[in-house]
Nucleic acid binder design. Sequence first.
DNA 1: AGTTGATCATGA
DNA 2: TCATGATCAACT
Length: 224
Amino acid sequence: MLNNSAEPQNLNELLARAAQIAGLTLGELAAKARIKVPPNFKREKGWTGQLLELSLGASAGSKSQQDFAHLGIELKTIPIDLNGRPLETTYVCYAHLTQIAGIEWHNCNVKNKLKQVLWVPIDGRREITPCDRIIATPFLWSPSIVQDQQLRQDWEELMELIALGKIEKITARHGQYLQLRPKAANGQVLTDAIGPGGNIIQTRPRGFYLRKEFTHAILCEAFN
DNA sequence: AGTTGATCATGA
DNA sequence: TCATGATCAACT
């Protein structure tokens, strides 16, 4: 998907653009971008996120940093139901499983990614065809002191297990707000990780995800 | 293979 | 019914 939209030069420009797409369907926004909407997301799972990047002028190709790096803002679409509840967990970033010495909460990818997020809630009910799904009101969010602490606690617990070579003991049930789950093209993909004896083992790549409970709280305070 | 964008689909 | 574990696509 090509990025033919100019980057917003400042925060107001970005927020103004975001406000303008509220209420549109994905079909209407796709028409503006001159791209086709898939009948479902069985194959193009990240299509909505890419449409929004394109429409809001996110800097494409800039990996491992925020979508709007010059503004320090990350863009996240989030599928919701009629009650405004999240339908899916939210991917944050890839989890490094080796060479984690020196990585602390204050300088980790999770904290950096979530410093400022432009959330774009979208009616994601599966009974509605992607073309007709309506974009709700986008809003800017930064973690509160409490939220930062919640994420930090889970992150530190997970990272400690990883550092102790217990990656294979970690399941998605760990962490109250932040969880670790497989993140790869398929189950055959392997990457290095720390083994039980401090040796290097092969395991499935993992990613950090925000639980629905956490994002629901974010949505609630935004629309209370 | 790594990392981004995520949702799918099956077992519990 | 729903979360976990698996998977899909693009790009590097």
